[in-house]
Nucleic acid binder design. Structure first.
Lengths: 155, 155
DNA sequence: CTTGCTGCAAAAGTTTTGCACACGT
DNA sequence: ACGTGTGCAAAACTTTTGCAGCAAG
């Protein structure tokens, strides 16, 4: 990839194969555009949005339409490769999930800083709650809002 | 209120006062429209969206514009009375938080059924994670996706 | 070849904003 | 009176869709 991100080729190949298999199973096609989009998604380290993908692909000289990105992202989500993450409600954000520990987010409302974290105890609680309701947890989203000590006291 | 919801008057009065205080502190005004919106919000038992409020207010004979609802909702969120909850990313959903235990959601992806739950252990984890990063948790959103046993096995 | 895919532009849907007038404080 | 609020309609933004030509299996 053109940018400095860790475009981990070790993960590109297997994911490419997984995506192809997913598509074939549904009678869908693996196109150059879809390959490019997957490649760009893999170059992203954290959370991203559609406009970012579009921008980076244009930077790298690929010409893919926004409509195609939207259409492909839906498939990537269904294939279990990426996940929709909700940070603000106006715009959809996504992150890679395949081969990664699920990352959750701690948002500092004072600084708008976003800290990623993973916590095993959280997964346990998640699985327990799902089981209590007769379900099996397959994913989750967890977002914590925090303030730094000072502002917590004021007002 | 006109509908069958539990329009708990025991909670309306104090919240009205809280909202007035919040507005005054910021040099904002308490108008009839804002009172109506707060009242309608309190009549909602779970998650709601702006169009729902608009519809119910019109049903009840109140005429408030969508723009005003959007503007007021921002203040209600800042006042800590309601919270934005994200179920799907296209549209903002809100729920009352004042005087309630924070409710989280377990979504069954097979049936689209949504189960509300509250779990104290989750709050502990939340507070611990925030503290680990030097912050104080003031809120959160937790959404679990689950499948029922059968579908978990297939594919 | 058949079926799905792409780009474009238009459409759809939610949220925001500019403006003139009305209303709390 | 002053400074906000309100409704309306238009704007802004993200996402979806219809269509004609193109490409994968």
């Amino acid at each position: 990839m053109a940018d400095g991100q860790s475009s981990d080729n070790a993960i590109l190949e297997p994911l490419c194969a997984i995506f192809r298999r997913f598509l074939k199973k549904r009678g869908l096609k693996f196109t150059a555009e879809r390959a490019t989009i997957l490649d760009t998604v893999l170059s992203k380290d954290g959370v991203f949005e559609v406009d970012e993908l579009l921008f980076e692909m244009h930077q790298a000289g690929y010409r893919v339409s926004k409509a195609t990105i939207y259409r492909t992202i839906k498939h990537l989500v269904e294939a279990g490769i990426i996940q929709e993450v909700l940070l603000d409600s106006r715009q959809a954000h996504y992150q890679l999930i395949y081969g990664r520990k699920p990352m959750d987010h701690l948002v500092c409302v004072d600084s708008d800083e976003i800290i990623e974290f993973h916590d095993d105890a959280l997964i346990e609680i998640r699985d327990r709650i799902a089981k209590q309701h007769g379900l099996t947890a397959v994913g989750h989203r967890f977002l914590i809002y925090g303030v730094n000590g000072k502002s917590a006291a004021k007002e």
